[in-house]
Computed example of a mutant assay.
Amino acid sequence: MDVTEWLSRCPLVAILRGVRPDEVEAIGEALVAEGVVILEVPLNSPEPVESVRRLAARLGDRALVGAGTFRREAEVEAVAEAGGRLLVTPHADPALVRAAKARGMVAMPGFLTPAEAFGLLDAGADALKLFPAEAGGPPMLKALRAVLPKGTPLLPVGGVDARSLPAWREAGASGYGCGSSLYRPGDTADAVAAKARALIAAL
């Protein structure tokens, strides 16, 4: 499936920053059971590639599993070899997008300006992550919608929670990257499932 099909199943991207390999499978299972099927392990988490490996082995047929906070092409290679199929970055780096696409991954790089957005799309990005989204708010996303190619998947990330979801949706968001509103280090699988239900209800 391409990224739009995954987003049509559930528009939430679970950002599991700080998750550990020994807990990631239970948390991933809880999220998928609630319908959240895009799972991102940021690379500044403990043993992130091992967490990706475990998620991909257990949930790869039911979820789009990958990593975030990429900075180097070697990291793309490591995550791809672990079974990761999603690249998310906090910044606009066309080289990382091209590296991900060369390995058959879905590329969802971060951007903040129209110039960055167009450069990333030219490099082959499948979707764009507006980050930090709270810096411009929903009005910024709505303005970007007017100039970016029709149908470009746009996902705000940063400060997105159940309270702000309706405003982002009204502004034209295709999906939503949810970090602390969905998972904080130390959360149990049950706690994450409850947070997922609250966010889905807000949609």
Rank of each mutant, 00 (worst) to 15 (best):
M1N: 04
V3A: 04
T4A: 11
E5N: 15
E5C: 12
E5A: 15
W6F: 09
L12P: 07
L12N: 03
V13I: 15
A14W: 00
A14H: 00
R20C: 10
R20N: 13
P21N: 04
I27K: 04
E29P: 06
E29V: 12
A30Y: 08
V32C: 14
A33H: 07
E34F: 07
G35V: 11
V36E: 00
V36Y: 04
E40D: 12
P48G: 02
V49C: 03
V52L: 03
R54N: 07
R54L: 14
L55Q: 06
A56K: 06
A57L: 08
R58V: 13
R58Y: 03
L59P: 00
L59F: 08
D61W: 01
R62T: 09
A63W: 04
A63Q: 12
A63F: 15
L64W: 08
A67Y: 01
G68A: 04
T69H: 10
V76W: 05
V79R: 13
A82M: 05
A82Y: 10
G83Y: 14
R85M: 10
R85S: 11
L86Q: 11
V88N: 02
T89G: 10
H91E: 15
D93W: 03
P94C: 09
A95L: 05
V97N: 02
V97I: 00
R98L: 02
R98E: 15
A99L: 12
A100F: 04
A102Q: 15
A107E: 11
M108P: 08
L112P: 06
E116W: 04
A117K: 05
L121E: 06
A123Y: 06
A125L: 10
D126K: 05
A127D: 12
L130A: 03
F131L: 07
P132W: 12
A133F: 03
P138Y: 01
A143W: 00
L144G: 00
V147D: 11
V147G: 13
V147L: 07
P149Y: 15
G151D: 13
P153M: 14
P153E: 11
L155N: 01
P156W: 03
P156G: 09
V157C: 14
V157T: 15
G158P: 01
V160A: 11
S164L: 02
A167G: 06
R169F: 00
E170H: 07
G172M: 13
C178K: 02
S180H: 09
S180M: 02
S181P: 08
L182P: 00
R184A: 01
R184G: 00
G186P: 00
G186T: 03
D187R: 03
D187I: 00
T188E: 06
A191I: 02
A196T: 01
R197L: 07
R197N: 08
A198E: 12
L199M: 12
I200W: 00
A201M: 08
A202M: 02
L203I: 08
